[in-house]
Design a protein around this nucleic acid. Structure first.
Length: 412
RNA sequence: GUGGGUGUAGCUCAAUUGGCAGAGCAUUGGACUGUGGUUCCAAUGGUUGGGGGUUCAAGUCCCCUCACUCACCCCA
């Protein structure tokens, strides 16, 4: 094999494409109805944009990105959508508040496995310029309702608050005091994180670390007055939206920009890969990226993860009929093209055969193409000004006058 | 980056202890010259992922390498 696709990428067609398109189209229609406007941003941005927003000490930035130099500048294929949307808002001076939806491929250089690729489509929504806790609840509710609308079930919603920088600096002291006597027990990963990105220690998979964290003070219990109030109100609204959720005090997020509310939708799919939708509030990111000081929140879901959490059913049936035109003999192309155009005008699929091929061969091909009807058009039909139409399932064949063909196709 | 599994015809897979590389499906042709799907007959199709080693003999054993896949890390 001379060329093959890069690791972790796919050629998507047939049934797989249909499933992906079905989810994307459903999302587009669902979120547009809820006031989200679609936005498309470049597949690559200045690398600094992502480093600044996601955080230097994250795996995405440290090793899982596609960075390249072109001319004097360093770019990165986007590993996520939020930073680009905010950059677009700032750069285009888009007035706030504003709701945006994106459905676009993202790129992360990880080892591929089930449902995870190096190029994958994320569906995400962002609400910029609103700080009221009701929107935190609404965002979560929207995610839940969308997933249910496409038939996903069996997921749980976990919620937490990781506060603002004010809460965090106080809490960091408390946590470090607690861990002081235990640092030699922690794994090396946690030791590093404690310095660079201390909240992330709660993501550790080591059991002995987790045992310690179980009894450690939690950020959730050490929020400042404002954040406490905010979080309590989010939970109150969630109840009013009738959203069932569990509070996970060890839920932090892998990207640095989150503040206050964070959440994950989890599905007991396979192993550690259980998050299908995740997000939260990022009130400081707009300003961090050079824009106005504006609160914001959002989430993203992986289309492949959504599909894995769907029941294993057939893709929705297409209402289009499929036609094949078997023209017999040459010199009849003009009428054939007219027939084809008439069929396609009615939004059906029509494929033309090769007039040089025998009827047998053309029908065989029509059969392989899984068409519903085959039109036969040869000298006999041309003389009688009709075409023969064969129903490929029943095998029945009838003649239709060419002048009536257009109205006939409409009835199919 | 780490660990496991798998690579044989276009596809799905066989091949006993190391002993002639096979089957089904698909494709092509014919039975059937303007009628597909079913049936019957026949044909085409291979550097056994690649390289090296052991052996009289390697798809099979050993080493290296590549690819795919699952899991870990991390993340949607």
């Amino acid at each position: 094999m001379l060329y093959q696709k890069p690791k972790g990428t796919r050629d998507i067609y047939g049934k797989e494409l249909k499933r992906i398109e079905a989810v994307c189209n459903a999302a587009r229609s669902f979120f547009v109805r809820n006031g989200y406007q679609e936005i498309r941003t470049p597949a690559f941005e200045m690398a600094d944009l992502f480093i600044r927003s996601i955080g230097e000490h994250t795996d995405i930035v440290e090793k899982e990105n596609y960075t390249f130099k072109a001319g004097k500048r360093v770019y990165m294929l986007r590993p996520e959508g939020t930073a680009s949307v905010l950059r677009a808002i700032i750069e285009n001076k888009i007035p706030l508040p504003r709701r945006f939806l994106y459905i676009e491929p993202m790129y992360r250089k990880e080892r591929p496995q089930k449902g995870r690729y190096r190029e994958f489509i994320q569906i995400g929504i962002e609400l910029i310029g609103e700080d009221d806790p009701i929107y935190d609840a609404e965002m979560i509710e929207q995610g839940k309702r969308f997933l249910e609308s496409v038939g996903a079930s069996g997921f749980t919603i976990e919620v937490n608050s990781i506060g603002c920088p004010k809460c965090r600096s106080l809490y960091k002291k408390a946590l470090k005091d607690f861990l002081r006597a235990k640092t030699n027990v922690l794994c090396s990963n946690c030791t590093v994180r404690l310095d660079k990105n201390f909240l992330r220690i709660f993501d550790c998979k080591e059991q002995k670390c987790q045992e310690i964290y179980d009894t450690a003070p939690k950020i959730t219990d050490n929020l400042c007055a404002n954040c406490t109030q905010h979080y309590a109100t989010v939970k109150k609204f969630l109840a009013e939206f009738s959203i069932e959720f569990t509070e996970n005090k060890k839920l932090v997020r892998g990207l640095d920009y989150y503040t206050r509310t964070v959440f994950e939708f989890k599905h007991q799919l396979l192993g550690a890969r259980d998050t299908i939708l995740a997000g939260g509030r990022y009130d400081l990111l707009m300003e961090e990226l050079g824009g106005v000081n504006a609160p914001a929140l959002g989430w993203a879901m992986g289309v492949d993860c959504v599909i894995l959490s769907l029941p294993d059913e057939q893709p929705p049936l297409v209402q289009r009929k499929r036609f094949f035109i078997a023209t017999i003999g040459e010199g009849l192309i003009t009428e054939t093209v007219e027939l084809r155009n008439t069929i396609q005008k009615n939004d059906h699929v029509c494929i033309m055969g090769n007039p040089k091929d025998s009827v047998k061969r053309q029908l065989k091909k029509a059969n392989r193409l899984q068409v519903d009807y085959t039109i036969l058009y040869g000298e006999d039909e041309a003389k009688a000004k009709v075409c023969s139409m064969k129903d490929m399932e029943s095998g029945e064949q009838k003649q239709v006058a060419l002048k009536d063909f257009a109205s006939f196709v409409k009835t199919i």
